[in-house]
Nucleic acid binder design. Structure first.
Lengths: 175, 175, 175, 175
DNA sequence: TATGAATGAGACTTCATTCAT
DNA sequence: CATGAATGAAGTCTCATTCAT
């Protein structure tokens, strides 16, 4: 991966996150990356290829983010870590752009990459099970779904109070 | 609102929902509406005007959908009706397209129309309050957020089991 | 067929004939036709569509050109008319461009539209047959092939003496 | 001429023959030649230089092909050899590509290299003269022209029966 | 000699919008 | 009110060519 390739990816990531995939022209990407437009196509084939490269990156980052949770054994801690996952991201501008993009892409292209979260789902099921919840699968599912809602609000709703919501959740789950 | 105007709106609604606002050309809309392209501009000024008309429609539909909840007095029923709101829609193809579009637009344009749900929020706060929940505002907020998550999954995740989730929720809230 | 459509076709015809299909950009066509570039695509879909429209025109013109031959009954006259066919064209600048294009396209795209000449071939076979040639099919084929050669030379070889060749041919076939 | 230069020429030859000069990008040539794109420019200056090198090659090959005819003294044999010249090529894939290219270039660039065939023309004129044909120059010219037609058909017309045509010709000229 | 990253001009195409009818 | 031909700007992509290594 050359320096210019990285610049292209970074520029595309931020622009796609800001304005959406379709609304971002390759010429805009080139300009922000300070690179000729042709280079984008040399390295990524076409605009879709550029998007895929970014999604790829996303999957890797997601794995990294979830790795810690999956390795945790103490059930309460599993749930707490999962709930707190979004707070980790919320201070880092780049990370926010990154997750914003993941959601935007989901909606723009209607691709829901469930496989990415399967491992976490298993970990949550196990945790709820050990904590004697009656329907651990459903609990896990609900929590995952809730996190999608929280992410949605955090990204889209201007005055959304993330910390308060997270605190309230931890309190509810007693973690 | 003439017949052709309605045809245009219906065509735009379905196309925007299917392919997104940016990806839908006015010529496609005209074709599906069986109307000349120029007519779109005569009636709605420009493409943005067409979108706004659709959003407008959305707000009215939302009001209709929520009206029943707001008028309800029995707290448990308020919560139950709110939870079940999405099931109402889930059988009707047009309605699904409609809500899909609302979410897609939120993400594409990053406009989160909170005012639309304020009245419902109040109703939920009141309900939770009457049911002696300790933090009724936070409970209401969480439930609203959760519903965004459920909508997200319902629309985007192919094998999402809506009914199961709704049942589980009702059970949790004992409604 | 609107006036501008005809201007586009005429411009494309002359440019494709002068510089070849691939070497002629749609913007050049638009400029010569004094028309916006977009209009080409509105009317012909894409560059290939423009080419096809021209080829279509070619087939019609060819039919017209051959119609007379096919209707002729006197065998010597059939052959004479066929041999003279190219001379008909050779004075008219537009017609030359037109036939040049037909050949250029054949070579550029390697499409040999044999069906266009089938009717003439039949007429020639019949003529040679009536004139007691021993192998009328082969004679017809050879004459057709020879005409391709003459066209090739006429178009490409700067100092080619068309009239002399035609005279010589008529003398050979005693027509 | 290094090995890589030859690989470039061979790749360019086959590609130009298959798809035409304009339609073949230098990057395609480089890929087929298994060589870096830059090398083409180092060796041949630019794309036109590459084409010229190939044309050069063509002239040399043509000389070789015609050398035998020119050296022949027996008039009937001169004519027979000339008529059979194309059959020599028709079994060899590389040779076909080579001649196809020569014709394609003629049409794409409208360069008719008459000088290449002048020596053969002289030989044919002499042959026809010795055989007491009344207009040996015209006969030679006609035969040359006919061969262009045969080449055209052989290359472009899918079901063209080359052998039959050649046999028929030999019979006609009694050679 | 050889590579391949990088460029910039220009190719084809799409699209929102205008306007004469 | 309604049509659809026409436009011009902008979009994605290709390609010959250059240049540092």
């Amino acid at each position: 991966m050359t320096e210019k390739q990285e610049k292209i990816l970074a520029a595309a990531l931020s622009l796609f996150a800001e304005e959406g995939y379709r609304s971002t022209s390759t010429s805009k990407v080139a300009k922000r990356a300070e690179v000729s437009e042709g280079l984008i196509f040399r390295h990524f084939g076409n605009k879709d290829g550029l998007l895929e490269a970014i999604i790829q990156l996303g999957e890797e980052q997601a794995k990294l983010l979830f790795a810690d949770i999956i390795m945790t054994t103490e059930p309460k801690e599993v749930i707490r870590k999962f709930i707190e996952i979004i707070t980790k991201t919320s201070q880092n501008k780049e990370a926010i752009a990154f997750w914003k993009l993941q959601f935007k892409i989901k909606w723009e292209l209607e691709i829901y990459g469930k496989h990415k979260t399967e491992a976490v789902e298993q970990a949550l099921v196990k945790a709820f099970s050990e904590l004697r919840y009656l329907q651990p699968e459903k609990e896990a599912n609900l929590l995952l779904t809730l996190m999608d809602g929280i992410a949605t609000r955090f990204i889209l709703q201007e005055n959304f109070d993330l910390d308060e919501t997270i605190e309230f959740l931890k309190q509810k789950y007693k973690v």
